[in-house]
Design a protein around this nucleic acid. Sequence first.
DNA 1: AGCAGTCATCGAATCGATTCGACGCACCCG
DNA 2: CGGGTGCGTCGAATCGATTCGATGACTGCT
Lengths: 337, 337
Amino acid sequence: MVKITDVARHAGVSPSTVSYALSGKRPISAETRQRIEASIHTLGYRPHAGARALASSRSNVLALVVPFRTGMHVPVVMQFAVSVVTAARRHDHDVLLLTQEEGEEGLRRVADTALVDALIVMDVQLHDARLPLLRALDRPSVLIGFPAEPQGLTCIDLDFEAAGGACVRHLAELGHRCVALVGSPPEVYLRETGFAQRVTRGFTAAADERGLTSTVHPCEATQAAARDMARRLLREHPGLTGLVVHNEPLVQPLIDAFRELGLRVPGDLSVVAICPDAQAEQAPLPVSNVAVPSAEIGAEAVELLMQKLEQLPVPESTLLPPRLTRRQTTAPRSASG
Amino acid sequence: MVKITDVARHAGVSPSTVSYALSGKRPISAETRQRIEASIHTLGYRPHAGARALASSRSNVLALVVPFRTGMHVPVVMQFAVSVVTAARRHDHDVLLLTQEEGEEGLRRVADTALVDALIVMDVQLHDARLPLLRALDRPSVLIGFPAEPQGLTCIDLDFEAAGGACVRHLAELGHRCVALVGSPPEVYLRETGFAQRVTRGFTAAADERGLTSTVHPCEATQAAARDMARRLLREHPGLTGLVVHNEPLVQPLIDAFRELGLRVPGDLSVVAICPDAQAEQAPLPVSNVAVPSAEIGAEAVELLMQKLEQLPVPESTLLPPRLTRRQTTAPRSASG
DNA sequence: AGCAGTCATCGAATCGATTCGACGCACCCG
DNA sequence: CGGGTGCGTCGAATCGATTCGATGACTGCT
């Protein structure tokens, strides 16, 4: 394996000069730099990651903790992970994958062994057991999602409260007066993952503000549950003409279920989902939606981390504004509706 | 940060003794070992990953290259990644996440910088551009999927050919005489990802062997495509009573489409899928399936890598035998069928 | 001409482990 | 009672970079 002293010898300079040429931390004349670059190229030199980490106390690796429990939509997680890796590479960093299962011990381990420089934690609970640890750690971190008390942390997420509100306002502007929210499975609420509650709050607040009748319904992510839910909503809320769905795998099954019950979408029932754009676009009838911008969140989380690694100040909380795209599942309330 | 010399001083031994106590590479008396362990615990010592990597030329990190293109079913990839991480942790290794996008350069980078000890590459093509590199690399690797010429590599996957055959035999044993395979989207075949072709081969061979009428149909993974496909199959193959689906997101849409066309499943049409058990179980009507055992493959891939890291011989190819579970979508051919 | 001030480069220390060879001690056997 | 055999431990070299202080050459100013 060719090392920095080999390059130095080949280029007729000292190892430190090679290092500085590479890092740019001290000025190097254009001439020597070129000679060094040529040597690096012909010798095929690659700095040894471990040696570099040891000497610089920077591993250039980020940890990414992914959830794998029920209730999180898998494609969203994956999309997110990919965008984190891509963004990290732009900053010359790599990404170490940790599972939620490893818990606090896993976080502590990769941080204390200096395996990673910083951490990104997904699926943060309102009262997450890892919060004290993350606060105490000497390494910067960014949380995806908001705990009950984000003080002293750096958090980022879609503004789910605003998203809930945006859906309701969209429906309200189309003339709908009675709306319902079909949300995540009950266990997600029990687990106190913030985003479920936040959607609910935004939904309800906007409905109240506009004087709409509104109800909220957690729902399992199965076709059977979707059918039951559709039937129940029709029975209990005969005036219902606007539906907000915040449960990715349920969007299509719910629409199908209502159709089977004889409703036209969007003719009799308008549906807005909170889901990734890709999903909304690819549906048989493209679904009006507020985007869940996993890729943006991931990329922005990495940017925040990079700022923190450079000791720059970053906002404690970053809420991405919701972006609603009207497609084909929402329409003005019909006279009959 | 507490280091090994601190531990050594605290325990009244030399640093090398601490190292040996930790690694077990030389015998250490029970007494000193306990003293050292106590010191480690009270001081909260964690060996520095970079220093360790430098000295031992082992980073204890594996690279995992994940695809993110269309055609790969996302939950399968995710499940796989999680199982790799879990298995790696059992061997005291961590996992670095790379995207396909990084390509050969990415592989070369993490290998040459000694950032990782070994690599796992998913979604291998029949004529994958990365094969020469993987063969030349000084670091061991395991491929998920089979290239055209696996010589000199280590490959593992579900035995898709046997899986295709198993589906056909299951249908044949239930009395079906005319079967069809609905496969991956056309681009997957064009891309020459081995598994699509292998399913086809096994499917066709088994059908020929049993004297069944059989046809093969690549299909896009959209509801609309599913409906079209169902209509077309009914029209072109009126005697069709057995269907094999090798396209995860299409399983349920296809079943729904046939139902809408008036067929009963499994009364008029038996359906076997090649898909994860979790998906098969959770369907409204549980689907008879050959399991795509992502978790097993991931875990086994890690085991193979660990063997290779210890210079132990491993088989060039590992084909996991298919496991077919009969659930509720397959039934004997009815008299009328 | 002399001095201050850059600019580019070098040399040596350092990061925190692992590993190899050597050494001392106890024990066993002849 | 002496010489081998192990076992347990130590000391020093090593891994391959980064970084700090120092040095030399050159510039510009007076």
